[in-house]
């Protein structure tokens, strides 16, 4: 009986033998693949995060300005001082408004792309959504300052359309108004909305893409008007994507310190507070405590989203 020809491992090259080894031991392959990112995530990322968290449980000596390395909740107590609480409430409100607006603006775009855009139109959609992400964030924000400034493009447009009175009336409104759009909360809101919108559109589109057309037809077939189909079928099925998008828009707004610096009022948001406390003020513990706030808020947000069944269709 002829010997069955199975080449022995030694007769072949190193890469062959390595392939054979990894093929026969899948666990080893997974370990090799996962180890570098796990180390990065575990040590550098999570490590830094916990170091930050630890800082928030220290306090600063009000006279010497030195950090007192003793466990205390006093720094967290400081967050509840009126001025600091204002910063938190203001930031959360802004993040909420930006997120809701991004949902409203992003959904039709995502729906069109998922349902109707084919071939070249789909490519154009991706290009249109992604293109702003390719240019520098600072350039975009400063361009918006030009658009929104007192003598800027928008006020020129209103003037040309003989609608200056409308803009002026809007700017006279409390809270959302101001001297010009570029120093108002409306300005900050518009720039946030513009900058984070792609992060809402893309996950929403991905979720809508997975909804088979027959699902919507079935709903109509069972008597649901388009509005009812939207509420009972399309929205629940798109919700995981919308929630994913809202995690981006919400958390990015919570943490950003550049946009409110360049466009908007002088009142601070959380990001600016962190920036100033750890920098000029040298109050690392309070900066750390402020940085914990978005993490907590996101935790609560995800918990509520889960309770509301946002991830049921996953």
């Amino acid at each position: 009986m002829p010997e069955v020809a199975v080449s022995s491992p030694a007769s072949r090259g190193l890469s062959d033998r390595l392939s054979d080894l990894l093929w026969s031991r899948q666990g080893l392959l997974i370990l090799l693949l996962i180890l570098p990112p796990a180390l990065w995530l575990g040590i550098i990322y999570l490590g830094a995060l916990f170091a930050l968290l630890a800082q928030s449980f220290f306090s600063i000596d009000p006279f010497s300005g030195l950090i007192n390395y003793e466990f205390t909740l006093r720094t967290y107590g400081e967050l509840f001082r009126a001025a600091n609480l204002d910063i938190i409430v203001r930031t959360v409100l802004m993040a909420g408004c930006v997120t809701i607006a991004a949902m409203i603006v992003g959904f039709p775009v995502a729906y069109y792309a998922a349902r109707y855009a084919r071939g070249k139109w789909k490519a154009l959609f991706y290009l249109g959504v992604m293109l702003p992400l390719w240019s520098s964030y600072l350039v975009k924000v400063y361009s918006w300052k030009l658009i929104l400034a007192k003598e800027g493009i928008l006020s020129w447009l209103f003037e040309t359309l003989h609608l200056s009175w409308l803009l002026d009336a809007y700017l006279l409104l409390p809270v959302v108004g101001g001297n010009s759009l570029s120093v108002s909360w409306t300005g900050t809101f518009l720039v946030f909305l513009y900058v984070w919108l792609p992060f809402m559109i893309l996950p929403t589109q991905a979720a809508l893409e997975r909804v088979p057309p027959s699902m919507l037809e079935a709903s109509g077939d069972l008597g649901a008007r388009p509005g009812q189909t939207f509420r009972h079928v399309l929205l629940p099925l798109a919700l995981p994507g919308i929630v994913a998008g809202s995690i981006f828009t919400f958390s990015l707004t919570l943490g950003d310190y550049i946009i409110p610096q360049i466009v908007g009022t002088s009142a601070r948001m959380i990001g600016q507070a962190v920036y100033q406390f750890q920098g000029t003020a040298g109050n690392i513990p309070l900066a750390a405590a402020f940085a914990v706030v978005p993490i907590l808020i996101m935790g609560v947000y995800l918990y509520i989203a889960k309770r509301m069944g946002a991830f049921n269709a996953l």
Binding site: S214, E217, A218, D221, L222, G223, G309
Partner: peptide, 30 residues
């Protein structure tokens, strides 16, 4: 949605986020 006909789809098109009872009761809920 105003036709007196109902369809059994080739891929069944059951709503994945609803349980069997709510799937079946969907038309009545509407």
């Amino acid at each position: 949605y105003r036709r007196p006909v109902n369809t059994v789809f080739q891929d069944y098109a059951l709503f994945p986020h609803l349980n069997v009872r709510d799937n079946v009761a969907y038309g009545l809920m509407i």
